[in-house]
Design a protein around this nucleic acid. Structure first.
Lengths: 210, 210
DNA sequence: TAGATTGTTAATCGATTAACAATC
DNA sequence: TAGATTGTTAATCGATTAACAATC
């Protein structure tokens, strides 16, 4: 193994660092410090320095970090210095919203096509993307070497869809269905479940009213 | 302080436990075990038992957990055995999608109104919800005792919106804008950032192709 | 009773923080 | 040079896991 293993929790913070660096650049800043980044993100400067140290040395003592340089380094580390082709499965309300979510494209994640099993939808468009039949999904994934997919189907269908995607060679899944997917090693799933997030917060709501 | 403090990371897992219990109930199951729950969720049975132990004793030795009983207990712990009134700020594409995301309502989170600053939108409806002027937001929050809000505005507006929400008495914010919010203690924010999730996964993508 | 599974304790593992030498 | 801030080490803190007595 060439790459020293880095805790997954550290990797998960890098996109947040990248995000704040982009804002600093937009503000015209040249230099920042672990202190400033920490203040902006509500975490300690020590944690930021420690996290970055897993990947190399990006700053200058006494000065701080060049924001453009650090941003570019993080993009390279995260492999987002390129375009990623994705597909989405599910052309319902949620799929519709995601098809119109332009931040995907502007961040380098391009939804090439949407797949659905509703004959009325197949052949039409959603946002900029064509809707195809799920039966043609494996061919499309193969032809376009798709590695990333978004699941936006009803909960009951999510497991089967995930299985098919993985079978076809997809190795990263962004899953909007509120169900835990069991996947083989080498495949990653990230979950988006706003209801779970709300329920996490309501736990703390009672204390205030007691 | 009446309540023994529970690690936040444990609280964050409870909604996932609740979710799988609901599926087990839908499947007609009466009893489950920490082993089965762990298998379904990809975590250890020890962790599930340990997590639950922070809140009480819910199982029977040799038997396991009554799924309905445990579900009801978790709902009570999370304060989701009631309806939560929410507002949403931002009537753009994202707000539109969220207004039509019926899982909020079916989980007990009711979006009462949507606020926007676009005069063309104010007075119209989105999904079932009326769109009001943001200028009327404080009054509405006060009148309806709103404690929870969803931010679905452009990034540049998110900080100001959050500040106003908090000023009006909102204590839980689900933030879809890709920016970290600084909030006073007693206020909670949860972030939904699908792009950050994708970037987390692309980190691991290169290993396979090397 | 014998088998199964909980709740809990102690051990292990991992992540965060504090502190500081190095150095720009 | 003096001041500032990094990168890193060691200490601390917290979370997960393993193991098992209790008991249904």
């Amino acid at each position: 193994m060439r790459k020293k293993i880095v805790p997954d929790i550290v990797v998960g913070r890098l996109p947040i660092y990248l995000r704040v660096l982009n804002y600093l650049i937009a503000e015209g800043r040249q230099i920042t410090s672990s202190q400033e980044l920490g203040d902006r993100l509500g975490i300690s400067s020590a944690q930021i320095r420690k996290d970055l140290s897993h990947f190399g040395e990006f700053g200058k003592q006494g000065t701080g970090y060049n924001v453009v340089f650090l941003r570019d380094q993080l993009k390279e580390i995260l492999n987002v210095d390129r375009i990623w082709k994705m597909i989405m499965v599910g052309a319902g309300d949620l799929g519709h919203a995601l098809a119109n979510y332009h931040r995907f494209a502007s961040s380098g994640f391009e939804i090439m096509a949407i797949f659905d099993n509703d004959p009325d939808k197949v052949g039409t468009k959603m946002g900029e993307q064509p809707i195809y039949d799920v039966a043609d999904m494996d061919q499309f994934i193969e032809d376009n070497e798709i590695k990333m997919a978004v699941i936006a189907v009803p909960t009951v269908a999510a497991r089967d869809v995930a299985a098919k995607l993985i079978e076809c060679g997809v190795t990263s899944i962004l899953n909007y269905a509120p169900v835990t997917l069991t996947v083989p090693i080498g495949v990653r799933v990230q979950y988006i479940d706003p209801v779970a997030r709300l329920q996490h917060m309501t736990y703390y709501q009672n204390e205030e009213t007691e």
